[in-house]
């Protein structure tokens, strides 16, 4: 591991004063960053520890639920307000990583974690995300875990988070602090697609700090489900995961939210499929139709082509669970 300087500025303002310098990285739980540093993938000169900042609160606001960026994944997943108002988030969190990791990982850190693509982690392999212009090892390689939506020839890596899939589905907003003040970004716009710049995972610019997320109030708490299909029952990344949330009145879907994990460089929101469900009865047939619609534009790369079939099956299954049909 490359030697680095460790900084612990006392206040949020002091943090903002130092993080815009090149070679500087923020560390919170460190569950991903430390691995990246050990493998020589991340080689920061300075680490800025923010764990002491007062960004851990989970509070009710006028319009929704605010979760501080430093709230631990384990704490959020067990929080009463979250369980009551946004159970989908709790389910997604509990499907992620392992209890030990969730005890360290923060909400902001979860958003900032990088892909687990094996080619990204092995510094002897080509990877445009790690070394722009070096090629994509996965494109014609062992891409079983890789994207079927929104990939480019440059990169077909997926974002590994479960939590983010639920936050994308729930129309959350990201609250970002910078030198010029705060800004808010829809969660679905926070992460980006690889395009020609796979080295950029998200819209956070140098000198900015995630301070929290806010989830607007909704009527989904009765009919939410997070279904994660994986190679083992815990501590495995998603082959495909689906966050499904339905607002059902008298058997008719009023609102629907759907997002997928394990299929794209970002949490993949399924807007068309959602719209197709509105005004329809919550039935298996309608869920299957929506699932087929959701797969438009999906592309397999060989090892991961099974996701073209697993994807819609998982969407329909998640919707059935959300609607209480299972």
């Amino acid at each position: 591991m490359k030697q680095f300087q460790y900084l612990r500025p006392a206040t949020q303002q002091a943090v903002l004063d130092v993080i815009n310098k090149p070679g500087t990285k923020i560390i919170a739980g460190g569950t991903n960053l430390v691995d990246l540093m050990k493998r020589g993938v991340a080689t920061p000169d300075k680490l800025v520890d923010i764990n002491h900042l007062p960004l851990k609160n989970i509070t009710i606001t006028k319009t929704g639920l605010h979760i501080g960026a430093l709230a631990l994944n384990s704490v959020v997943s067990e929080n009463d307000l979250v369980a009551k108002k946004q159970p989908l988030l709790a389910m997604a969190l509990k499907a992620g990583a392992s209890p030990q990791l969730r005890n360290m990982a923060t909400v902001g850190g979860n958003m900032m974690q990088r892909t687990r693509c094996g080619y990204f982690y092995d510094t002897t392999m080509p990877c445009n995300k790690r070394v722009p212009g070096s090629g994509c090892g996965a494109y014609e390689g062992v891409n079983r875990m890789h994207a079927i939506f929104g990939g480019s020839e440059q990169c077909i890596a997926v974002h590994p988070s479960d939590m983010c899939v639920s936050l994308a589905a729930l129309d959350a907003e990201v609250i970002i602090a910078g030198k010029k003040g705060e800004r808010r970004l829809p969660f679905t716009e926070f992460h980006r697609l690889p395009g020609d710049h796979p080295e950029m995972d998200n819209q956070l610019t140098a000198g900015e700090l995630i301070i929290g997320v806010e989830i607007p109030d909704n009527n989904f708490s009765k009919n939410s489900y997070y279904l994660k299909v994986r190679d083992r029952q815990s501590y495995a990344f998603a082959l495909v995961s689906v966050a499904a949330a339905l607002d059902i009145e008298n058997g008719i879907i009023q609102h629907a939210r759907l997002a997928m994990g394990g299929v794209a460089h970002k949490p993949w929101r399924l807007f068309d499929a959602e719209r197709s469900l509105i005004g329809k009865p919550a039935s298996e047939d309608n869920f299957k139709q929506a699932a087929q619609l959701a797969m438009q534009g999906a592309k397999g790369y060989g090892y991961n082509s099974f996701k073209l079939k697993l994807g819609p099956a998982t969407i329909a299954e998640a919707l059935k669970h959300a609607a209480g049909l299972v």
Binding site: R116, D231, R232, S234, Y235
Partner: peptide
């Protein structure tokens, strides 16, 4: 159900040589 050490034959290197990617059963399994 899960154990498999995977080589990318183009390079001849293992690509899942860690406990996150080489799956052994956990209690939940």
């Amino acid at each position: 159900l899960m154990e498999e050490s995977i080589i990318d034959h183009r390079y001849g290197r293992y690509i899942n040589n860690n406990f996150a990617d080489y799956h052994v059963p956990v209690n939940a399994d």
